[in-house]
């Protein structure tokens, strides 16, 4: 089953204008969005779909406060959809929609959709750095940062779910859909990647009571740590509340910066995540601040040191 990762995450929100404002500020591009909501996409076409929570077109809500309504997974080919249909039809209802996509639910009742991926191939450079001992990545006179530099989310990276039963969640995605555990934070849960994606994780679970079940956060890949911090700084300057970061995780090695949102979960910019193949041996570490991150910073307003103290005697 060549599942690539999440194409879209669908939310039923209670503040549609606020959510539209937020997703736009976050750097996603509205596509066909009107007063009833719509798709906000990253550069590769993956993204977030929002509707009013009362919209009858949405899958049913979770039994909790969470606003996540559906995870839409992209797969490589029709044969992958066929394989998923055969496997999941063994013990649950799988609906084949007119466009060939499949709708069903996982063992926790999260609504799932599988479709031939809509993501577009990107061809853009990663952030380029220069360091002694290594070939320069930027040519002479090629500058690294400028005030108006682009810093747009490139691709929907991963989703993190609060679930009451980690084993049930991991078993469904690993044994039924071919996901692989890359690492585990003991006390929280495992990081998973699907077969057709070499990112460290597209899915992570955190164990919580059942009244919290839902989406903890979702993340978009940026072009590098500088883009991540530039985009985050712009977001905070626009009034958005930072939650955690910027920093760099240990498992996955990805830079992170999380923000509050009106969609009832955090939104994250991530950058420079590890890649893995099937030769990787999963690691384990007890969940905690040290295991979670190698560095953590907190944004402050810009200032700059100067020459003499402000009270210095003028010559």
């Amino acid at each position: 089953m060549n599942i690539i990762g999440p194409d879209y995450l669908v939310f039923g929100v209670d503040d549609l204008p606020g959510s539209i404002e937020y997703l736009t500020k976050f750097g996603l591009k509205p596509v066909g969005v009107d007063a009833s909501g719509g798709l906000f996409e990253a550069l590769d076409g993956t993204g977030v779909i929002i509707r009013a929570k009362s919209d009858p077109a949405l899958p049913a809500p979770l039994k909790t406060a969470n606003m996540l309504r559906q995870q839409v997974y992209g797969v490589q080919a029709d044969s992958d959809l066929d394989a998923i249909e055969v496997e999941l039809s063994k013990d649950r209802r799988v609906v084949r929609l007119a466009d060939g996509s499949l709708e069903t639910a996982d063992d926790h009742g999260f609504s799932l959709k599988f479709q031939i991926t809509r993501r577009r191939a990107l061809s853009m450079p990663a952030e380029k750095i220069n360091a002694p001992g290594a070939p320069a990545q930027r040519a002479p006179n090629e500058i690294g940062v400028w005030e108006e530099m682009p810093a747009a989310p490139r691709s929907l990276s991963h989703v993190v779910l609060f679930v009451p039963d980690i084993a049930k969640a991991a078993d469904f995605y690993c044994q039924r859909l071919g996901f692989v555990v890359t690492d585990t934070l003991i006390g929280a849960g495992p990081f998973l990647r699907p077969k057709a994606n070499d990112d460290h994780h597209t899915l992570f679970f955190i164990r919580t009571p059942d009244y919290m079940q839902g989406c903890e956060h979702l993340a978009f890949h940026m072009g590098g740590p500088t883009e991540l911090m530039v985009a985050g700084t712009r977001l905070v300057k626009s009034g958005v509340q930072s939650f955690w970061g910027p920093g760099r995780h240990k498992f996955g090695s990805n830079w992170f910066w999380y923000f509050n949102s009106p969609l009832g979960c955090h939104f994250e910019y991530d950058a420079d995540m590890d890649k893995h193949d099937d030769s990787w041996t999963p690691r384990e570490a007890p969940m905690g601040p040290e295991a979670s991150q190698i560095v953590l910073f907190e944004m402050r307003e810009k200032w700059a040191p100067g020459g003499p103290p402000p009270g210095a005697k003028r010559e």
Binding site: D15, N66, F243, S261
Partner: peptide, 18 residues
């Protein structure tokens, strides 16, 4: 921006607590 969409509750916009 501290309220839920309907303006009936204080909301935490981390995880949607009311």
């Amino acid at each position: 921006a501290y309220l839920n969409g309907a303006g009936t509750h204080l909301a935490c916009h981390s995880h949607g607590a009311h």
